[in-house]
């Protein structure tokens, strides 16, 4: 598969990590579900994330059957769908938010397929920089992976704790932007502690790729973010942000700031 064409949008992620690297800082990637708790508050949440110091926003495209997600993100997706969220409206949200930090769409395959051939270029036009699809592992669908890999968006691939080393290399080779390392077996959500095997998994992955490595799933507190941040290039916080978004913009801002401070400390 060819590497993505050099367009400004996908490079926004690379530039962000280059800048972080120069400053010896770790990236803070924050997930929110588009349209949750409602469309206007979703817009406020995005601005709060940027203001609070997030480096990258993962914007969830809601799907009716999110098999990789735990209860918090499931409920937020269901609520977003009830609010009438569609792929077009997600792009509209990206466009209206006009964030200066990169936006990565986080989706299941089906809503993207339903949006048609131009789904990815339209996302780039609206200002998105990358896309991550939870249910397209490497080799699952070469034709569509090529479509995803050759779009103006960075194509972020996932590595799991169960992924063997050879396959890690294969995954990294077919992705761009950064590699998303799933920290533990299971679905998205909160947990008390991080997997004991994480340092070893990260070093195994590090030996196969030069792409930045961001670790997600189960990271919710500043202390966890700090701990994982010492091992990786970035951390992804999802369910905790979604829960804060339900409380309000102030809660999102406070959580993002505390995560930022923990990572920079």
């Amino acid at each position: 598969m060819a590497s993505p064409p050099a367009t400004t949008s996908s490079n926004a992620i690379a530039r962000r990590f280059d800048a972080l690297h120069r400053e010896s800082r770790r990236g803070l990637v924050c997930y929110v579900t588009a349209g949750h708790p409602d469309v206007s508050r979703s817009l406020e949440t995005l601005h709060a994330l940027q203001e609070g110091g997030a480096d990258i926003v993962e914007l969830g495209v809601p799907f009716s059957d999110p098999i990789a997600d735990g209860p918090i993100i499931q409920a937020s997706s269901q609520r977003a769908l009830e609010n009438g969220m569609t792929y077009d409206r997600v792009l509209d949200l990206v466009e209206r938010a006009k964030l200066t930090i990169p936006v990565v769409l986080f989706s299941y395959l089906n809503p993207i397929l339903a949006a048609g051939e131009r789904a990815l270029t339209r996302a780039a036009d609206s200002g998105a920089s990358g896309i991550l699809i939870t249910d397209v592992p490497v080799g699952a669908d070469p034709k569509r992976e090529e479509w995803l890999g050759n779009s103006p968006l960075a194509f972020i691939r996932l590595v799991a704790p169960t992924t063997p080393r050879d396959r890690m290399a294969e995954i990294a080779r077919h992705g761009s932007g950064f590699v998303y390392l799933i920290s533990r077996l299971g679905v998205t959500g909160l947990q008390e502690s991080t997997a004991a095997s994480l340092p070893e998994t990260i070093s195994r992955l590090r030996s196969t790729t030069a792409l930045p490595i961001c670790v997600g799933f189960g990271i919710s507190t500043p202390a966890q973010a700090r701990k994982v941040g010492m091992l990786a290039d970035g951390v992804v916080v999802g369910s905790a942000i979604v829960r804060a978004a339900e409380e309000g913009t102030e809660a999102v801002l406070a959580l993002t700031r505390s995560l930022r401070e923990a990572l920079d400390a």
Binding site: T134, D135, D141, P142, L158, A160, T162, T163, I182
Partner: peptide, 21 residues
């Protein structure tokens, strides 16, 4: 092209990476 896991265009393995092994 993944033909082993398909019936024509249908089938495949659209699952989280964790399940692939």
């Amino acid at each position: 092209a993944d033909t082993v896991h398909r019936f024509g265009a249908f089938g495949g393995r659209y699952v989280p990476e964790t399940l692939i092994p």
